Computed example of a mutant assay.
Amino acid sequence: MNKTVILDFDNSTGTIPDAVRIELGQWQEAIRFGCSQACFSQLKQELEQKLPEHYGTVLMGSGDYHHVSLLLIKRLQEYFGATKPIEVVIFDNHPDNMRYLFGIHCGSWVSYVAQLPFVSHVHVLGITSKDIGLAHSWENRLAPLFQGKLTYWNMDVKIGWAKKIGLSHAFRSFASPEELVSAFIQTQQRNTRPVYVSIDKDVLAKDVVQTNWDQGRMQLNHLLSVINSLNQRIIGSDITGEVSQWEYTSWLKRMLSAMDKQEPIPEATLSAWQQQHHAVNQQLLSALVQHPQTTR
């Protein structure tokens, strides 16, 4: 069985028995939230050296590191680039398909995944963020939506603007998580393509876990139902969304973090919330290890 890997940027992930822990604390300021493409390439080189040849689910800490998923997905190209295309299924309260002028960040990485030639489609499940509403429509990168390579599966957001410009096919709206999950599972019944699963726990409701970000409406059983429905197709996975704190030295990141309203968390509260995350991680890992994963 391939071992779980912890990319330890922020010391937020609890102890996972037999996991391979890769210390990356020296990258926290540089990579967290966002970074230049040059810096991202440097991290890629270090991961190439430190990641095992074969591994299972990767835990990356805070959702501020979700863009690292792009590097993990790119590693699959050696296996699937010239053979069978893959799909990427992302659980996230945000589209992560937004414009970012300073390189790549945790809210822009999905558009890069959609551009990979061996990725046939990207699904983002559980969005309730106003990031896909009219006020933020100009921030969304529309190309992968128009090209039919990206679908938003969303709730509670008015998306009439998208229908008016011909994007009805890319926005799937639902009244409840149950309806969303049921519809997604139904669309996958005859699909045989390999799947990479990426989980940001801000997709979960606050009565499940507390994160640094605004959160969605899903319950843990909704995620587990989708994972189980994908069955033997899963060839890689990662989990992010741990709750953690960091005081940036960069004025730009301090400003952007303040705009996202990430408030300081008391130490006792932080510890309690991290214990909640640890329990959820254990259940997610138990579901994901039931499926074979092929990783470079």
Rank of each mutant, 00 (worst) to 15 (best):
W153Q: 03
T13M: 11
T249A: 06
G160H: 04
T211A: 09
V243H: 11
P177V: 10
R190P: 04
N97E: 04
G133Q: 02
K84I: 14
A272S: 13
Q210G: 12
A170M: 05
D92N: 15
L256S: 03
L70Y: 10
C35W: 05
V110C: 15
L134C: 10
Q290A: 15
L167Y: 06
I104G: 12
I199W: 07
L285S: 10
S286D: 11
W27Y: 08
Q37K: 06
N140R: 06
L72T: 01
I165E: 02
T269S: 08
M60V: 01
L72H: 03
G34D: 09
M259H: 01
D202S: 12
I90P: 14
Q232H: 10
T294G: 05
I31N: 08
C39Q: 06
E267R: 00
Q37P: 10
S111T: 15
S36K: 02
L101Q: 08
M255C: 13
D260Q: 05
A279W: 03
Y248H: 13
V209W: 02
S12W: 10
Q45G: 00
I239A: 15
Q188L: 01
P52L: 06
N97T: 08
I86G: 05
R75D: 01
W109L: 14
Q219S: 03
H66W: 12
H94Y: 12
D131Y: 04
L285W: 03
L288C: 11
Q290N: 11
Q37I: 03
G81T: 08
E29G: 10
M155E: 00
T249V: 14
A272H: 07
Q77C: 04
S225A: 15
V58K: 14
V110S: 13
M155W: 09
K130E: 02
S168P: 05
Q293M: 14
R193N: 15
A143S: 09
G14I: 02
L134P: 02
T151R: 02
L134I: 06
W138N: 00
E139C: 08
K164D: 03
P144V: 11
G236A: 15
A135F: 02
S182F: 15
E29K: 08
L24A: 04
Y112L: 09
E48W: 07
V20Y: 08
D96T: 15
S182P: 02
S62T: 04
A258F: 01
V110L: 14
G34M: 01
H94Q: 11
V122C: 01
A19I: 03
V110T: 13
L71P: 02
K130R: 13
F80W: 08
K84T: 13
Q274G: 11
E53K: 00
Y55G: 14
R217D: 10
F184G: 12
G216H: 12
Q275S: 02
L288P: 03
V197I: 14
P85N: 06
K149C: 09
F171L: 06
V89A: 09
W213Y: 13
S271I: 13
L180T: 10
L24V: 06
I22D: 08
S69I: 00
V197E: 11
K201V: 01
K261H: 14
L101T: 11
S182L: 11
I132H: 13
E46L: 05
G126N: 05
T13V: 11
G160A: 03
L220H: 04
I199P: 14
E267I: 00
L204D: 06
Y55Q: 13
K3A: 05
E87S: 15
